[in-house]
């Protein structure tokens, strides 16, 4: 993919990558950082967007999608990674692709104390469960990193994740 847009258009660049990779199922628990990408996916009739009650549902769903020959991706916030830990064993034991795109909270200038423990542990927890993790902390790094995450998942059959840093997304300030 050759992005011809500015670095701030990274959600549109991710959408373009999902199309390039033939993604047909997008599982998500919403995060503000993913809102523009979610809108693009919802407007696409070739992508089935499934909102989940908890992020671990997405791991089961994308395993089922792969069984049926469809590629999928899981979008979530860093807190949701904690809801996925045991379910990651499904993709590891079956050796199936599981790309995840995670927007970080509790990472860089966080306001909410509850976001910090999981935000601080997100990469460690994913790696402890056998996931290949790459970080993107500037807008121009996001598309190449997501591309690598998708390629490594579908070419090498394992869970992979891009963590999009809070430095890119901005910290929610609650008016303070």
């Amino acid at each position: 993919m050759q992005p011809d847009t500015s670095a701030e258009d990274w959600p549109d660049q991710i959408y373009g990558l999902l199309k390039d990779h033939g993604i047909r199922q997008v599982a998500l628990v919403p995060d503000a950082g993913h809102s523009r990408l979610i809108k693009r996916c919802l407007a696409d009739n070739d992508i089935k967007v499934v909102t989940l009650t908890t992020e671990e549902e997405g791991i089961g769903m994308l395993f089922g999608a792969w069984l049926g020959g469809e590629k999928g991706v899981l979008l979530m916030q860093s807190s949701g990674v904690g809801n996925c830990i045991n379910m990651l064993s499904v993709a590891i034991a079956h050796r199936t692709p599981l790309p995840m795109i995670v927007t970080m909270r509790g990472d860089y200038g966080e306001f909410n104390p509850f976001q910090v423990p999981m935000g601080n542990a997100t990469q460690t927890v994913l790696e402890a469960m056998g996931t290949l993790v790459k970080r993107a902390d500037s807008p121009e790094d996001i598309a190449p990193t997501v591309n690598a995450t998708l390629r490594m998942a579908f070419n090498t059959y394992r869970p992979t994740a891009t963590l999009i840093g809070q430095r890119v997304i901005g910290a929610k300030t609650f008016g303070k």
């Binding site: 089935k48 997405g58 395993f63 089922g64 999608a65 999928g72």
Partner: peptide, 12 residues
């Protein structure tokens, strides 16, 4: 996770 695996497969 079984029911959700069924959903992903049924959609595919």
């Amino acid at each position: 996770g079984a029911a959700m695996m069924g959903l992903g497969l049924a959609l595919a």
